[in-house]
Simulated scan of single mutants.
Amino acid sequence: MKVLITGENGYISGQLYDYLNSKNNGFQVIKKSVRSNIENIDLNGIETVVHLAGLVHKKKGYPDREYIQVNCELTKNLALSAKKQGVKQFIFFSTMAVYGFQKGEITSFTATNPETVYGKSKLLAEKELERIASEDFKVAIVRPPMVYGPNCPGNYKLLSDFIKVAPIFPYIDNKRSMIFIGNLNVFIEEVMINRDSGVFHIQDPNFVSTTNMVKNIANINNLNIRISKRLGIILSKILKNNKLYLKVFGDLFYSTDLTIYNENTYQKYDFNNSINISEKKVSMYD
């Protein structure tokens, strides 16, 4: 199977590229930037496009129009070109942010309600792809929660770095959906092999507590960090409606029935193995 992965310099695209190339399963994988001259991209012989290229949410932000151009219009144009050139499947990476700043459980009855231009642009792209999809052009839309793994950027790295200098951390028993890069790779592989379509919500086998994650990271790195229930109570009272607090310690998770796919064989790595691999920064693809 000949596969094109977009997002040449992205973390997920790089990890997926290495994973598929490590497998002896007939994948021929190409990784390419598609930010310019999209109409001239040669997709001849490509069976599946995994579209990971996009404009992610940054602290300083970009003009709203740029999010729409990159995340929606570029996606639509790439999909139209792929369909015209005979590509059989288009896998689009959307985001949990299409649900907005939800708290608690997301189920099949939870309405999409993006509150950031990033989330809105991804949802617009989803709608465009659903219009383009057909029996001969399967579209799979993936809405992952936070992705983590060895050498990953983003919130996991910030938390891991913070733990290595912090003497104390609050005990707060929250519940979050996350997905380890190894489990995500297996999921994408299965979707390609099965040529599945639809909207997919994925996560690790177990929900994650931020405090439990901190304990695991500290143990692996032989760090002595004190977990304080009193500090947790104080923070929860003072900052309970603070967006940063909710992002770190709030409950936000997919219901388990929403994330069932192929008997969940994609959930290959459990929490302890995932954190161990992430912290030791070992390759999974040798």
Rank of each mutant, 00 (worst) to 15 (best):
P145K: 13
A82F: 15
E73N: 07
I91D: 08
K58F: 15
S33V: 02
I68F: 15
F200N: 02
R65L: 12
M146H: 13
T112P: 10
T265P: 01
D136S: 13
V282M: 07
T75E: 04
S121L: 09
G26V: 04
S209K: 03
A166G: 04
P144D: 06
E73A: 00
L235P: 00
L246M: 08
D161K: 05
K175Q: 10
K23H: 08
Q267D: 03
K84I: 13
K247M: 13
S134P: 05
I220G: 01
A125Y: 10
Y19N: 03
T75S: 12
K247N: 14
F90W: 02
K88A: 13
G154V: 07
I181L: 04
K122L: 03
I168F: 15
G14M: 00
V214R: 04
I68D: 08
K215N: 06
K31T: 00
I168M: 15
F249D: 01
C152W: 00
N222R: 06
D42F: 00
V147C: 01
I5L: 15
Y261N: 04
E47L: 06
K122D: 08
L16Q: 03
V29D: 00
T211P: 14
R143G: 09
T210W: 04
D18V: 00
E190R: 14
S255L: 05
L20N: 01
K127G: 09
G10A: 06
G104S: 03
E128D: 07
E135C: 00
I168E: 13
K120F: 07
Y11W: 00
K281C: 12
G54C: 10
F169C: 04
S236N: 12
I5T: 12
S36V: 02
S255I: 07
E39P: 00
T75H: 09
L16P: 02
C152V: 07
K31G: 00
I217L: 02
F27H: 03
D251K: 08
R143N: 15
E105Q: 14
K23Y: 10
N40R: 12
N273T: 10
I38A: 09
H201Y: 15
L129Y: 11
T211E: 14
I46E: 00
Y269T: 03
I141A: 12
K247T: 15
Y118K: 07
F253N: 05
Y62E: 15
S36Y: 08
G14V: 01
F187L: 13
G119N: 11
L252A: 11
S177C: 02
I202D: 03
P170I: 04
I220A: 01
N241D: 12
V248K: 09
L129H: 03
Q102I: 15
T112A: 11
H57K: 13
L43F: 10
L258R: 10
K127P: 05
L80F: 05
N113D: 14
V87C: 08
A133T: 11
Y62W: 14
F207L: 14
G154N: 04
Q89L: 07
V191C: 04
V139A: 10
K215W: 07
K157V: 08
A111S: 09
F162M: 15
V186K: 12
K76D: 09
V49W: 01
S283R: 08
E263T: 12
G119W: 06
N151D: 07
A140D: 02
E126V: 13
I5S: 08
V56R: 13
L16R: 03
K83Y: 04
F93T: 09
K240R: 14
N224M: 09
E66W: 08
V248L: 14
K122H: 11
L16H: 02
